[in-house]
Design a protein around this nucleic acid. Structure first.
Lengths: 134, 134
DNA sequence: TCAATTCCTACCAATTTACTATGAATAGTT
DNA sequence: AACTATTCATAGTAAATTGGTAGGAATTGA
């Protein structure tokens, strides 16, 4: 049960964007690649997941780039991870209609564990992460 | 971040052994395979992990098999999952000496999340799982 | 029109997962 | 002692997943 590199890199990107939140210019993928050490092409894919989850907004064309859609204290770490980590789900049978639902002893457990993890991650804001205050 | 089949099957085995806990005979791998629908050879590997974690004891030879080393209410689900799910760790850098420790914004987060997950799983006993009372 | 940028999607190698297979070691039974 | 039933150890393997790379289309500002 491992976190993917997307989860880690997604947090890196979020932290960089958070540091830049009060400035006027947005950050482009080249800058984010520079800051995080992750390739531009891979970051593009990860940022796309965050954009679709409406965590970042983008501007195309020259002088384009990315910025957070809301302030770092309003964005939870759970929301970021759910966006990039394929919904963060512990097992697939929680989202699909699992034939074992109700029969499998593990099913309820996974559901409760998933709720527990999300509840915890939602108590931590991106701002806390930036301040290294978790 | 998915649970492996070993985690699920490990719980299945534990539940079967728990149901058998008050009886004299132990359960062999053929019986457990029958009860769980998992192949004998794969179960052997999973049970070996539980044996090394001292959750089950084994008897070799004819009329041999497996039993729990302690009663179902004394065994936590967390202990079972840590035994079969490669220590259940969220990221590798928690156990190895990660060069990023202290530098990586995610590191503390993973540590706290891992603690949180384990604390939750340790509140649930195998007996609760058998009674479907989680 | 051109350059800088995001956006979309196909592809690929390495790793991990989820097993199968083989056979040795051990213990009870005859 | 031989036989049978069982666990124990480990090697191999096909399929899925991860962690990227690559190419080019679409959009925007100068």
């Amino acid at each position: 049960m491992k976190m993917s590199s997307k989860a880690r890199y997604g947090l890196y990107v979020a932290v960089e964007l958070a540091k830049n939140y009060n400035k006027d210019e947005c950050l482009n993928v080249a800058m984010l690649s520079q800051a995080t050490g992750v390739s531009e092409k891979y970051l593009e894919q990860i940022i796309a997941l965050m954009r679709r989850a409406d965590i970042v907004s983008s501007t195309r064309g020259a002088a384009g780039g990315y910025r957070l859609t809301s302030s770092p204290e309003q964005i939870s770490v759970g929301r970021i991870l759910r966006a990039v980590e394929d919904n963060l789900e512990i097992v697939d049978c929680l989202s699909t209609d699992c034939a074992q639902r109700g029969k499998c002893v593990a099913h309820n457990l996974w559901g409760k564990l998933y709720d527990n993890i999300n509840a915890y991650l939602d108590t931590i804001s991106l701002e806390q992460l930036v301040e290294d205050n978790i």
